[in-house]
């Protein structure tokens, strides 16, 4: 029993040490010697893969989540005669919580798993080794552009998610359930703050973007180069990244809105 606990502890420490080491290596690759001429096209290509291709799922999910929020919120608020608070309720839920968190979870599933699988496969087919033998640093050539693309794309996706979600809430709340148009927007405006809500939401999603992209790349880079290894790395990316996002979300929320 004690052995089991000790082994859990040891594994945790080992994996933390491994991830820390990987972080240092990664930072080194990211910060070291920027070469805009070569890295800009790579970044653009990865933003296409990571960002543009996640756009559809983000927009559709955002729209539906906004609509559901409005529908659920209305049935609760109408009992208190406070249906005019529907606007701020939808907007605040999206900006503070659902936008960053759901985007991060969807991103982990859509783009994170793909990143892990891609890098794992590149490792298995010796493409990473072959880069190294061609005197090209795979961290700089393969990992860094994907990392930046994830870090930039996810907050953008979160913004789109929230905006689309608010529009979905507007469609259901105002056009279907008959909340007053003017009140919906003006009450929303007076209770949603630019700094407190919008900016904090963006900060959240930048942190999530960092964590999710990093986990995805780390898992791919350290996967066992076999088909079983890659599939388990992919699963592990989604699970680890989702848990990390939810855990961090609590910490960040406590820091930002708790005090």
């Amino acid at each position: 029993m004690l052995d089991a606990i000790a082994s859990v502890g040891r594994q945790t420490l080992d994996s933390l040490a491994g991830m820390g080491k990987a972080l240092l290596v990664l930072l080194n690759a990211i910060i070291g010697k920027p070469t805009p001429k070569k890295s800009a096209p790579l970044l653009l290509q990865q933003m296409h893969v990571v960002g543009v291709k996640s756009l559809l799922i983000i927009i559709v999910s955002g729209l539906f989540i906004g609509m559901v929020l409005a529908l659920q919120g209305y049935t609760i608020l109408v009992d208190y005669g406070a249906e005019q608070s529907l606007g701020p309720m939808v907007a605040l839920s999206l900006l503070r919580e659902l936008g960053p968190v759901v985007t991060a979870l969807l991103f982990a599933g859509r783009a994170g798993s793909a990143l892990t699988a891609e890098i794992g496969l590149m490792k298995a087919t010796e493409q990473l080794s072959s880069l190294e033998m061609m005197a090209v640093d795979p961290l700089r050539r393969v990992i860094a552009p994907r990392f930046w693309a994830g870090l930039i794309s996810m907050p953008m996706l979160a913004l789109i998610f929230s905006a689309v979600g608010i529009y979905g809430g507007y469609m259901v709340g105002v056009q279907w359930l008959g909340v007053d148009d003017g009140a919906f927007w003006s009450v929303m405006q007076s209770s949603v703050d630019w700094y407190d809500d919008l900016l904090n939401g963006i900060i959240k999603s930048v942190v999530f973007a960092f964590v999710v992209t990093w986990i995805a790349l780390y898992k791919g880079y350290n996967s066992t180069p076999t088909s079983a290894g890659i599939s388990s790395a992919t699963t592990s990316t989604v699970v680890t990244a989702s848990l990390a996002v939810l855990g961090l979300d609590f910490v960040l929320t406590a820091l930002m809105f708790g005090g």
Partner: peptide
């Protein structure tokens, strides 16, 4: 496509900043 993506995100930000939030 990346350009369109960036523009959509910028529009989303503008929408959130001016339509949804008070710019205090």
């Amino acid at each position: 496509t990346v350009g369109i993506f960036v523009i959509i995100a910028a529009l989303a930000l503008a929408f959130l900043a001016f339509k949804a939030a008070s710019n205090s």
